[in-house]
Design a protein around this nucleic acid. Structure first.
Lengths: 330, 330
DNA sequence: TTGAAAGCGCTAACAC
DNA sequence: GTGTTAGCGCTTTCAA
């Protein structure tokens, strides 16, 4: 099919292109008769407005860039779903970018985002990337950060107070006389882990104690499972807190291997879980982090930033978590 | 920061915009000196070419639309990663669209895709959507289908022969004298299930038998677990084949509940699994479906379609699977 | 080697 | 109500 433009439609309908444009954009100044002629022409020619040309003329693309870390779709999937659902409602398109480890990588993405002239960018990334954000704001691109509490003239954020979640959890255990608490760390997810550790530290400090239950594990399930199997032979804790359910599961399985009864001898909690947690035995107690909402609300905030005066919006939105006890805790 | 255009750069450098354009696009006819002047001006002004304007002028957007079903990122995540990695190499952007159930929904997406003038679209969807594909080809958009074997002037496909995978598996069991085989179905993933059933039918037919081991289950883990718990009280099979590991896990857990020994009394295989499978006990035997490769190869094929004469490319690419026995089979 | 100018397809003042 | 026209920012002939 030959490319059909607004001119072709105008010719076919015997009107000017301005009129066609009006019809496309639902202007109600067009007379019924002409409108119908135009619509028939559009139908007949199979005309679809060129969003690129519209973008050029209007200086906006109605697309949002979404930046997420590569690989972990298990956890970001729900965020994406939430974001896309809201984006659909407001007719925004989503350009997907994933970040890998390299620093150059991220600069390429920023460059790319600026060139593509998206109307805004939503970032879910564990690393804060202050500097990269600055180049984005320099180009006046509105930003929404998922998972971190930050804000600025052009930056909003939607997050869950994980630090406090862990604080409350640890406090409960400390008050129950259980003091041997460890937090699992891996090299990824640095920011989340930092928050978790801060929460624990705070709780310990409240009790006049010092926290140092760091448990550094490898990045993959298999290796961390092996690691834990060794580790648990001569260590045990009252409570182990993991970031992801997969890490918690590694602990659970390793504990089984060592004949450690969960939850009686050792309890386990994770911060974020997936649908697979419900298939495990025991199921891991977790904080119900509202992933879908994180995505949906972020996109909603973005649409607001794009419509209203930025000053009038709530720039930092905290979503609530809910501790959900399951079989891995008493 | 004020919007800086190619004109500004031209002024700053004291050359015409044509020259700036040449420098941006790496034309080697520009003299060293001028080139440097231009580059300095670009640097000084922080100029980034407007991809939208380029798209208009060049009639191409260097972006590809990716269409996937909503929700199941657990399984599509790797596909996306593969696709993005290759897209990055060839400097293509990815526009992400997810399909939900409604039929109108999908038409909206197609409409949207056409308007956005992407250079091509990659579709991973269980429903074949012949008609929708037609409207896309009518507008000359190159298409790559993941998971289905289809091809056409403007359509390529990358897939795994699941029918044959199941055929071989079932044959093996039939030859071992095990004839009570069932395939789990849910309403989603219709096409994959059809292939699986066809494979089973073929195998049975080869042996002069008829296959009718359909096992219709609910869509969610919890409900299908409950269903299986009931079902297994008075049914048992030699082998149950599921599409997803989550479904297989529902069976495994329900079997445990009923004191059925897996794999001794009943064996279970799934077609696609996730990293969570390795955390389960027993681990489900599965076909190693190369998800990442499905994505990567699809994107690679797309780049070829975009560069070469479509006739010269291999339009149907079959990726191989590998049956991986684990603890759920003997 | 560089510049001038005609598009690419559309929107939005402005004029009629 | 409808048409005319000047952009939006870039690429690419065609001349010089």
């Amino acid at each position: 099919m030959k490319r059909v433009t607004i001119y072709d439609v105008a010719n076919e309908a015997g009107v000017s292109l301005a009129t066609v444009s009006r019809v496309i954009n639902g202007s109600n100044v067009v007379k019924g008769g002409t409108k119908q002629k135009v619509e028939e022409a559009i139908e007949k020619l199979g005309y679809k407005p060129n969003a690129i040309a519209q973008g050029l003329a209007l200086q906006k693309t109605t697309t949002i860039a979404l930046v997420i870390p590569e690989a972990s779709f298990t956890y970001t999937g729900q965020i994406i779903n939430g974001l896309l659902d809201v984006a659909k409602i407001y007719k925004y398109n989503i350009m997907l970018h994933t970040t890998t480890e390299g620093i150059n990588e991220i600069n390429d993405i920023i460059e790319n985002i600026i060139k593509s002239r998206v109307d805004g960018v939503v970032i879910y990334n564990d690393k804060l990337m202050r500097e990269e954000l600055n180049t984005l704001t320099k180009y006046n691109v509105p930003i929404v950060i998922i998972g971190n509490k930050v804000s600025d003239a052009k930056i909003s954020s939607v997050y869950v107070d994980i630090e406090n979640a862990v604080y409350e959890l640890v406090m409960k255990y400390l008050e129950g006389g259980k003091r041997d608490i460890a937090i699992i760390q891996d090299r990824k997810n640095g920011y989340s882990i930092d928050q978790m550790i801060n929460g624990a530290k705070k709780a310990y400090a409240t009790k006049g104690l010092e926290f140092n239950g760091y448990l550094e594990i490898p990045g993959q399930y298999r290796t961390s499972y092996d690691f834990m199997k060794d580790y648990l032979q001569d260590h045990k804790h009252d409570l182990i807190i993991a970031n992801r359910d997969s890490q918690a599961i590694a602990v659970v399985n390793a504990a089984k291997e060592n004949g450690i009864d969960i939850p009686k001898e050792m309890e386990i909690v994770c911060v974020i879980d997936t649908k697979y947690n419900s298939m495990m035995r025991p199921q891991i107690s977790s904080f119900a982090i509202p992933s879908y909402d994180l995505g949906a609300v972020s996109m909603r905030v973005m649409t607001k930033m794009l419509q209203e005066n930025t000053d009038d919006i709530d720039k930092e939105i905290e979503l609530s978590y809910l501790f959900t006890p399951r079989q891995s805790t008493l």
